[in-house]
């Protein structure tokens, strides 16, 4: 118990250790200990970021990535949940898909990028499809396991009360699988976020992935660092949002 309880000193450590790290980084970089072409100082990174904010370059790449992720993730979520429900409810659907899906989902999404570009070109559609795939599997699997894990005891209550299939689905199976579905969504979002960057690095003219890649070609390490920080912060923010959503939606646990 005591181990989990943080004292005020612990909070100081939590807050100040990253700040200390930034100071060391600044010192190492500006003090000429390493080449700034490899490691620009944090101040330089911040200045670059502000510059990119004001000339619109950041917004251009950022919004491109966000739009793609949003669309791709929505498609991945809707199809993952739908197919998950169908295969969770109907054994026949599950039988048809099971072998196919276990092979397909073992392929890392990044490996599919060249094929998808071949089929769909390098436009927006291919990127959206990659993101959708990148989020699809974890949502599908978690939806399936949520549905098949629905407490049989609750289903028996429905049998005793002679509830129809639709009621059982809507009022028992779906709420019972919700925690699992949300876990899938959480993994799906991070999958989508990873795939968009990969897709943009390979074939794109806009987006944060492209921005990082292009900065390397242009020898702008500070821009690369801006991109990486943004990736980290967005990833963290998305995770927090889903956690919050989970708390709101799963009020009964």
């Amino acid at each position: 118990m005591d181990r989990n309880k943080r004292k005020p000193v612990d909070y100081l450590i939590i807050v100040f250790s990253p700040i200390l790290l930034l100071f060391i980084w600044q010192f190492v970089s500006e003090g000429g200990l390493v080449n700034t072409a490899f490691l620009p100082s944090p101040v330089k990174v911040l200045q670059t970021f502000i510059g990119m904010l004001s000339n619109g370059r950041f917004h251009e790449h950022f919004s491109a990535s966000i739009v793609r992720v949003s669309i791709g993730f929505c498609i991945g979520t809707v199809s993952g949940i739908t197919i998950g429900i169908l295969s969770g409810l109907f054994k026949k659907v599950d039988d048809v898909l099971t072998v196919l899906f276990s092979v397909l989902r073992s392929i890392p999404t990044i490996g599919l990028i060249p094929l998808i570009i071949l089929w769909l070109g390098i436009g927006e559609i291919s990127k959206v499809v990659i993101i959708a795939i990148g989020s699809f599997w974890s949502i599908l699997l978690n939806t399936q396991s949520g549905i098949s894990g629905t407490d049989v005891k609750l289903l028996e209550v429905a049998r005793i009360l002679q509830k129809d299939k639709l009621t059982v689905l809507g009022r028992i199976i779906l709420p019972a699988s919700l925690p699992s579905i949300i876990t899938g969504i959480r993994l799906g979002i991070s999958g989508a976020w990873r795939s968009v960057i990969a897709a943009e690095m390979i074939a794109s003219m806009r987006g944060i992935g492209y921005m990082i890649q292009y900065a390397r070609e242009m020898s702008q390490p500070a821009v690369m660092f801006v991109g990486l920080f943004i990736l980290g912060i967005i990833g963290l923010a998305l995770d927090l949002i889903v956690k919050l959503l989970e708390k709101k939606l799963i009020f009964w646990s």
Partner: peptide, 8 residues
């Protein structure tokens, strides 16, 4: 039932 089996 032996357990209350309410919908949480």
């Amino acid at each position: 039932f032996q357990e209350s089996r309410l919908f949480p």
